[in-house]
């Protein structure tokens, strides 16, 4: 089971979870669009990556994201029975659950979530993101980040303008 959740607390005040969401084109991406159209506010912790079907998401993508410092990965597809491709989401379910099992040994399983969000569930999309963000906040930062720190320089708070500012910040983070 995951033990790192309680052991770790957020590094700094400025830390916000970083979540990657794989959304299927037909339901969940449209659900995220609807959340936008309806102006359901949720924290800017998630970035949506569009795939045609949730079944396209390979475990390798999830591992890569976690290895690169994602604090959480969400895979979202159509409800069972509503899949645009008949039963792609069932394949996704099997794959994600297997990936979760594998991640359990590493204590990362809670950082991966599978959700069914339909095109009409804009509110649900925003709720899922809010809830997942809260959960990740409880778990704390992805511990991989510490190990990978030299490669991943991510001071994410300061607004940056132009390349010179960029360079300055990078140096700053390296000193830290």
């Amino acid at each position: 089971m995951s033990t790192e959740g309680t052991a770790r607390t957020p590094k700094s005040e400025g830390w916000e979870p970083n979540i990657l969401a794989f959304c299927c084109n037909w339901c969940s991406y449209a659900g995220a669009d609807l959340a936008g159209v309806s102006r359901f506010q949720y924290p800017p912790t998630v970035k949506v990556l569009r795939v045609m079907c949730s079944s396209r998401v390979e475990p390798a993508f999830i591992l890569k994201a976690l290895k690169d410092g994602a604090d959480g990965v969400l895979v979202a597809g159509c409800h069972i029975g509503d899949c645009h491709y008949i039963d792609g989401n069932k394949n996704a379910q099997v794959r994600i659950n297997n990936t979760k099992k594998a991640l359990e040994k590493l204590g990362f399983d809670k950082r991966l979530r599978l959700e069914w969000i339909s095109a009409s569930e804009g509110l649900r999309f925003s709720e899922v993101i809010r809830d997942f963000t809260e959960e990740i906040k409880r778990l704390g930062e992805n511990p991989v980040k510490k190990i990978m720190e030299p490669q991943i320089k991510a001071p994410r708070v300061a607004p940056l303008e132009g390349a010179s500012a960029l360079a300055a910040n990078i140096q700053g983070s390296e000193v830290k």
Partner: peptide
């Protein structure tokens, strides 16, 4: 193509 996006989600300055 997908990995290019995944890799760039979190690396603001890299």
């Amino acid at each position: 193509q997908i990995l290019a996006q995944v890799k760039n989600v979190f690396k603001f300055q890299e």
